[in-house]
Simulated scan of single mutants.
Amino acid sequence: MTMTLDELAPLFGRETLERAIARGHIEADGDRVTHWSRRQLDATLTLVRAGVPLEDVLSAGRELQRSMDDLAAMFVRMIAAHAAPGNDGDDGRGVGELAETIARLRPGAQITVEAGFARAMDRQVRAAIDQAIGRLAG
């Protein structure tokens, strides 16, 4: 989605946006900003409105993207090595079938990552609550 800086500024604050652009967190072309996902923008806005600095959200997003790139590469390597055509010695089936196999198995990989992240969030939330209870009881 594309919007102007004037449309985005009320959501995050002009000063915060200008700092984010100056640090390279957000790319602007003139007065236009392009964001890859409305859902992601809404999630960012929710965090910022809850008091999380935009710079922290953007930093976490970059770190998350690096991790996601690593996970995606792992799944593609695994599928290509074990489930893709050509692994039975018949290399004549081609790249098209490899792409189809990866596309067919992609939703399962995505569900696996989503479920793993949900489990990890549950563990981290429980740990944070236990830590807060410990401080209160302490």
Rank of each mutant, 00 (worst) to 15 (best):
R38P: 03
D69V: 04
G24V: 04
E63V: 08
L58F: 02
L54I: 07
G30P: 00
G61R: 07
M68Y: 13
V57R: 14
D69A: 05
V57Q: 10
Q65S: 13
T44W: 13
R39A: 12
A43D: 07
T44H: 09
Q40L: 08
A43P: 00
L64I: 03
A60E: 09
P53Q: 03
W36L: 11
L64E: 12
H25D: 13
D31W: 00
H25M: 11
R39P: 01
A43V: 09
L64R: 09
R32G: 01
H35A: 06
D56K: 15
E55R: 13
E55F: 03
E27A: 08
G61D: 07
L45Y: 15
V33M: 02
G24I: 05
L41G: 06
G30D: 02
L45H: 15
V57E: 05
D31A: 00
L54W: 06
R39Y: 05
R32Q: 13
M68P: 01
G30H: 03
D69L: 06
A50C: 10
G24R: 05
M68K: 09
S59C: 04
D56L: 10
I26Y: 06
S59K: 11
V48I: 07
V57M: 07
S37F: 04
Q40H: 14
D56P: 03
S37L: 04
R62P: 02
D69T: 03
D56V: 08
G30A: 01
E55S: 14
T46R: 15
E63G: 12
